[in-house]
Simulated scan of single mutants.
Amino acid sequence: MFVIAVSILPDDDEDSLSARAAWLHFVGGLTQGEVAGRLNVPAGKAHRLIARANRAGLVQVFIDGTIGSCVALEEQLRDRFGLSHCEVAPDLNEGPLPLRALGTVGARFLRQACEGGAESVIGLGHGRTLASCVSRLPRASYPEIKFVSLLGGFTRKFAANPFDVINLIADRAGVEAYVMPVPFCLNSAEDRAVLLAQRGIDEVYDLARRASLRIVGIGTVLGQDASLAASHMIEPAELAEIQQAGGCGEVLGHFFDARGRRIETELSSRLMSLDIEELRTGKMVAVAGGALKPAAIRAVLESRLLHGLLTDERTARALVDLPGPG
Score class of each variant (00 low, 15 high):
54 N>Q: 15
87 E>P: 01
71 V>E: 15
70 C>H: 02
23 W>Y: 14
46 A>W: 00
36 A>L: 07
33 G>P: 03
15 D>N: 10
82 G>H: 01
42 P>A: 14
78 R>N: 11
88 V>F: 05
28 G>I: 11
32 Q>H: 04
62 F>H: 15
45 K>N: 05
29 G>N: 06
68 G>N: 11
69 S>V: 14
31 T>F: 03
38 R>L: 06
27 V>S: 05
57 G>T: 00
33 G>D: 14
41 V>E: 06
53 A>C: 06
65 G>A: 07
78 R>D: 08
50 I>E: 00
73 L>W: 04
75 E>G: 12
47 H>V: 12
69 S>P: 08
15 D>M: 08
47 H>K: 14
17 L>Q: 15
43 A>T: 11
67 I>H: 07
11 D>H: 10
50 I>K: 01
50 I>F: 05
31 T>N: 06
14 E>Q: 14
66 T>Q: 08
77 L>Y: 06
39 L>R: 04
84 S>G: 15
84 S>W: 03
9 L>G: 03
22 A>K: 02
76 Q>E: 15
57 G>P: 00
55 R>I: 03
16 S>C: 07
34 E>W: 01
16 S>F: 02
36 A>S: 15
60 Q>D: 04
53 A>S: 11
60 Q>F: 02
41 V>M: 10
65 G>I: 07
68 G>R: 13
71 V>C: 13
73 L>S: 13
48 R>V: 06
13 D>G: 15
53 A>V: 06
30 L>I: 02
31 T>E: 10
27 V>R: 12
61 V>D: 07
58 L>V: 01
30 L>W: 03
70 C>D: 02
20 R>G: 08
51 A>K: 14
65 G>N: 04
38 R>A: 14
64 D>Y: 12
39 L>Y: 07
42 P>N: 09
38 R>K: 14
81 F>G: 03
64 D>I: 04
32 Q>M: 07
56 A>N: 09
55 R>D: 13
41 V>R: 10
57 G>W: 00
72 A>W: 01
65 G>S: 10
12 D>F: 04
66 T>R: 09
85 H>W: 09
62 F>P: 05
31 T>Y: 06
77 L>W: 12
42 P>E: 12
48 R>A: 15
36 A>F: 01
51 A>M: 04
36 A>N: 08
18 S>W: 00
76 Q>D: 13
23 W>F: 11
74 E>N: 07
52 R>D: 11
37 G>N: 11
30 L>C: 05
14 E>W: 04
72 A>I: 04
19 A>M: 06
78 R>T: 09
43 A>P: 01
50 I>L: 07
26 F>N: 02
39 L>T: 08
60 Q>L: 09
72 A>C: 03
46 A>P: 06
21 A>N: 02
70 C>G: 03
19 A>C: 15
40 N>I: 02
63 I>H: 11
48 R>M: 11
16 S>P: 01
59 V>Y: 00
77 L>K: 03
9 L>K: 10
32 Q>E: 12
21 A>V: 04
73 L>K: 05
11 D>W: 13
